[in-house]
């Protein structure tokens, strides 16, 4: 298992490298980090531009710059992934990309994690209930909710939920739901109970928004997988043994029907990260989404690259965890 994990990690490196080349080139050709500066009125002094070009290594060719970005050899000590440096930022000379990125990672992972856990839990529940009551009113209702959720633009739904939160607060006359901000600041210095209520206030609405799409697609998937298992020979044999229905469902059907969901959930994390950016934007969280938007707006190439690399690593990590989990759940898979 350890050998397998190491092999998988090693195998991911070339893919990650290839992806970094692709994105590096695309980011490079699609925009100019100094575009805003060059378009300033009145035009800045050429020496200012030259200084900035040197600071951002724009005076070197693209392959050189890529090499520099990876290794940091020949740079000013602020660049080079292998040295743990993500490169200079256009936003200011003192802006540390790595520091900011990891500062915000925690905020976003909190949201992504909560959404994943709740989406998975509810999806399993809805999928199982749907499958067991196939063609019932409940099944049709859940199916329709699924379709609706899959067609829902996340940011629009976020706006609606925000309005609903505000409305609810007005109705009960107290701030049950916070509709703006991520609550990091408010949680400081609170005792445990205070932190819990604070987390509930700030996280409930964004989590509902973010989990919606994943919940929909996973519950559909779980329903199919559950139906397949319910019609399987081994579930029939379990019944024939004389096990009561609830034992059959729990021990035989659910246990096996859960296995394929691990892979699906891992693939789905990319979509959740997408959704998190939109959700954070609406609820004005200071997470990776804000970092990303600022980086794009400022043509901050190195910050963007750092961001994309990080999301790539997250996706690969999720897939690796899913594979390992699959191996634990399904004895047919053996990692030699």
């Amino acid at each position: 298992m350890l050998v397998y994990t190491v092999r998988r990690v090693l195998g991911a490196i070339p893919i990650l490298l290839l992806a970094s080349v692709l994105t590096f080139v695309l980011i490079d050709v699609s925009g100019d980090p100094l575009a805003d500066l060059r378009m300033q009125q009145p035009p800045p002094d050429p020496s200012v531009i030259q200084l900035q070009e040197e600071r951002l290594y724009l005076d070197r060719s693209m392959p050189e710059r890529y090499w520099l970005w990876i290794t940091g050899i020949g740079g000013n000590g602020d660049i080079g992934l292998l040295q743990g440096k993500f490169g200079p930022s256009t936003q200011s000379a003192t802006y540390d990309i790595g520091e900011n990125l990891f500062l915000r990672l925690g905020t976003t992972l909190r949201l992504v994690g909560a959404a994943m856990v709740f989406a998975l839990g509810l999806a399993v529940l809805a999928g199982v209930v749907s499958a067991m009551r196939q063609y019932s009113k409940l099944d049709y209702t859940l199916t329709f909710i699924g379709f609706l959720a899959l067609a829902m633009p996340v940011f629009w739904f976020a706006g609606i939920m925000q309005q609903a939160g505000v409305g609810f607060n007005e109705l009960v006359g107290s701030q049950v739901f916070a509709t703006i901000g991520d609550g990091t600041y408010q949680a400081q210095g609170q005792d445990l109970w205070g932190r819990i209520t604070n987390a509930f206030a700030y996280m409930t609405l964004p989590t509902i928004v973010l989990m919606l799409t994943s919940f929909a697609s996973w519950s559909r998937y779980q329903r199919t997988s559950m139906l397949e298992v319910l019609n399987s020979d081994y579930v029939r044999l379990a019944r024939a043994k004389g096990l009561p229905n609830r034992v059959v469902i729990r021990r035989h059907a659910l246990r096996t029907a859960l296995i394929p969901l691990t892979t699906v959930a891992a693939v789905g994390i990319a979509g959740i990260i997408d959704g998190a950016i939109l959700t954070e934007r609406v609820f004005q969280w200071r997470g990776l989404g804000e970092f990303f938007i600022a980086a794009v707006e400022k043509n901050d190439s190195y910050a963007l690259m750092a961001w994309l690399l990080l999301s790539g690593v997250l996706v690969i990590l999720a897939n690796l965890i899913a594979d390992l989990l699959y191996g634990v759940l399904d004895p047919r898979i053996r990692y030699e």
Partner: peptide, 22 residues
């Protein structure tokens, strides 16, 4: 190669490229 295209979240990728264009 397909994996390479799938490891970066789609929206982030296209938004980064499109937003980068001035």
């Amino acid at each position: 190669v397909v994996d390479v295209f799938m490891i970066v979240p789609l929206l982030v990728m296209v938004a980064a490229i499109a937003g980068n264009v001035r």
